[in-house]
Design a protein around this nucleic acid. Structure first.
Lengths: 331, 331
DNA sequence: AAAAGAACTGTAAACGTTTGCAAGTCCATG
DNA sequence: CATGGACTTGCAAACGTTTACAGTTCTTTT
């Protein structure tokens, strides 16, 4: 391994000078600097992250908290985006885990992480709250803490748009199947009721059904329950695109045709929604932006602590993607 | 931050003793050790990974090389499994990237990674080969280097099983759509020809078509080309489950019904294959095992260098999953 | 009772950086 | 020609560990 010392010896300068030259400090003669940099290059020098971190208390490494083992394309995309954005800014990504012995916070401290993005977790659990409320810079995605900034989707408005979209296309009996309770679900359910109300739509008992995210089976069952109602809906919103697969099979079994007998609406706008037939009407989240914003928010906290308010909340809007699972606009 | 020194002061012992006690070394009085450990616990001590890595040259951190931005459930699952297995063994996972400035190898060295799992990459590119051939412990997944161990699926035998499975169900005109060229594809195509040959099946010109992995569109086009042949196939194997979605729409457009007019076969056995109707006949890879083996192979290299041969190759078998996209066995 | 070993603990160097401080050289200013 | 500043460089300490070596005490062996 080539160290600063080796370069210093060959250049007949001190380690300090080499360090300064390689870090682009201005207070070193430009010729010397050039010579040092050239030699470093030739010798195949690269710094030692551990030594640097030890000395500076900065690791240029950020953690991702991701608890579940659900394999949602949305999360893959998000992680990927976070990774590439972070890399561009000179940071690496390490997964943050909670082993039996160490809590998240300790683990992050142990690794010397500069900050953590809380991507997917039981947000209200003690370990996660400890982390979010700690001195470590954090950013939450799709959950709102008072103690750290967050990036959230426009859950409220997106549902509003979807419901109105269905309404314009003549659907009046609109039902909503939601995922497991939590911040996101609450937002969406609220949005649903509010919009129905403002459109003068009645939401009969049983029109709001519980299922799980990313699980066609439970959504198929919710669909079954909806169809068994005395006055079944003519349009159903689902928690995500993938879950619509359960709806498709269930509706087919019931002999209902999409979109004439019943309209269905997904959420997320993952690739799947564009390749199934009919193409799914859905709401495409701007995953790219969410990932980028999370990184930006985190790094700005890391590099300029105190500049941003702890409760800053960036709302990232998505876009309604019309598909073939709703009737076209009446002419 | 609590350091060894702090504990040493409070316990009236030297830093060395504290270090030994906390590392469970035997040569420290058990009472002293107990006292030290208790106090360390109370004070909320956790070691400093950077300092430790600097001194020992071990980071307990392994890298994952993952170039593409394709979001395949298979890769999510694999990464997840690698992560959990590694964590169990006390290692963390960091993504390895290649920025403009540093190659993979340098990046890995810079971060002091103990080893790297090459998950998805342009295996033959100079940067990746440099890494694989270096002093750094590496394990490749689904590619065979001579310079580092690997974990691969039974691509050859799986295709054999699938073709025979179709054959038994009366299909005789079997075609194969494959993904982009490379190690995996080569293995599978070889397997296909070999099995057809041994079954006495003719493989007419055009029965082997090129498409891309995880891309319904190109697979739809390949399907179209197959159907336009003078003697079109009665059964088609696709590169993966997801790509079959393209086949479904294309076949529907052509007015062919599955599985009576035409049989189709996927690959991977991701969740999708179980929720589409008809349920897909496919080959389920043992992702769990692949992930685990990769970690095991890597860690054994890290912890006992030279014990395993550099060209060790673990083949992980999957399992054929019969579905409804092939006719049942003739009675 | 002396010698030898076992058990325990401390000293100090080392890992590769960064950085505050001081010192040196050189040039322009007065 | 003395003074002061700009520019460049080196010295040395520090970051938090681990570990070889040596020293001390205590027990066992002869």
């Amino acid at each position: 391994m080539v160290t600063l010392k080796d370069i210093a010896n060959l250049c007949n300068v001190s380690v300090a000078t080499v360090s300064r030259a390689l870090n682009g400090q201005s207070d070193v003669n430009s010729n010397t600097a050039k010579r040092i940099r050239r030699l470093a290059q030739e010798m195949g020098y690269y710094p030692n992250a551990a030594a640097r971190a030890l000395k500076t208390n900065r690791s240029y490494n950020i953690g991702i908290l991701y608890e579940d083992e659900i394999h949602h394309e949305y999360f893959s995309l998000l992680i990927d985006r976070i990774r590439t954005t972070a890399e561009q800014k000179g940071y690496d990504i390490t997964f943050l885990s909670k082993s039996k012995q160490t809590a998240y916070y300790e683990h992050a401290k142990y690794r010397g992480l500069d900050g953590v993005i809380i991507l997917q977790a039981t947000f209200e659990s003690p370990e996660v709250m400890q982390l979010a409320g700690s001195d470590l810079p954090c950013v939450a995605i799709d959950y709102q803490y008072t103690c750290c900034p967050c990036v959230i989707s426009d859950h409220h408005s997106s549902i509003d748009q979807l419901v109105r979209h269905a309404y314009e296309r003549g659907y009046r009996k609109i039902a909503f199947v939601h995922g497991q309770p939590g911040y996101i679900t609450d937002q969406r359910v609220n949005g649903f009721y509010k919009t129905c109300c403002s459109l003068g739509l009645n939401v009969p008992e049983g029109y709001v059904q519980a299922a799980f995210y990313h699980e066609p089976q439970s959504n198929a069952e919710a669909t079954k329950r909806l169809l068994a109602l005395p006055d079944p809906p003519s349009c159903i919103l689902y928690p995500d695109d993938y879950s619509c697969l359960g709806a498709f099979t269930q509706l087919e079994k019931a002999g209902l045709s999409i979109p004439d007998d019943i309209g269905i609406i997904g959420y997320d706008g993952i690739m799947l929604s564009t390749v199934i037939r009919p193409r799914l009407t859905t709401y495409k989240q701007d995953v790219q932006k969410k990932g980028e914003m999370a990184v930006v928010l985190l790094i700005s906290q890391i590099e300029a602590p105190g500049v941003r308010p702890k409760d800053e909340c960036v709302v990232v809007s998505g876009q309604l993607v019309p598909g073939g699972t709703l009737r076209p606009l009446p002419t």
